[in-house]
Amino acid sequence: MTWRYVDGLDRDAPMWRRMAGVWVHRALLHRMALRDVRLRYVGASLGLWWAAITPLLFVGAYTLLFTFLFRARLNPGASPAEYALYVVTGLLPWVAFTEVATRATQTMAEHRNLVKFAMFPLQVLPLTGMYAAMLSQVAGLIGALAFSLIIHGEVSWSLLWLVPATFAQLVFLAGTAWFLGAVGAVIRDVREVLQIVLTAGMFFTPIFYRTDDLPLLVARVVGLNPLTPLLGAYRAAFLGTAPDLVGLAIFAGFSLVLLVGGFITFERVRSELSDIL
């Protein structure tokens, strides 16, 4: 029988191997993510169901509010169901992003015992929030898929856009998690700033409106939001609209840079973390 140990000295390994360490520790990532989700709802009588109920209620409430109360439509005369699908497919990646960003700034401080007293592969920690957020998103997307089947009555090839969209989103979220995990651990103020940025950011993200409908100046600002092409790709998958290919390519490139940059930032801070926390 062979034993494996957490490699306490993997900080000396080259950067790519440390990054690959995340794959080596995937079982640990899975367990830690589940642990975090369970802990959040421990003692609640509905337990883990809250992990599904909360986002469903959130997304459902926003969708109903804009579809039926504000009577917003994608085009004059279009069905309310199309608009609801538009909102859901935009809201789900946005919620995942806010979840990942918020969790990442807290996660190192929350697990300070692991940082200070255990030979733990720390690069796994910021990703636990991403794992949980993506599980919620997948659950939501399955719901959206069912909804789409009902209103469209068929499965479209455009659903294949989900593959590049999910892949680019994972890269983007991992980069965000590492970067904010590192910065948030060193500078506590980042958490507060982040909440303001996220609240404001929601209005500069095309969740409830289309970029085409905006005045040119505002559209330019919203166009700078890296999430805009990602949301476009999800809409392409579910609504059959034309995706912004150039935008998506730029988003993918940006995500890769963020991934590498975020990981390097995290590794820079990592050896100091046990002294800082």
Binding site: G8, L39, V42, G43
Partner: peptide, 17 residues
Amino acid sequence: ARMSAILELGSGFHPEL
């Protein structure tokens, strides 16, 4: 050599679980 450490009781343990 490969190393294992108990620097603190119950690293990764959580009281609620």
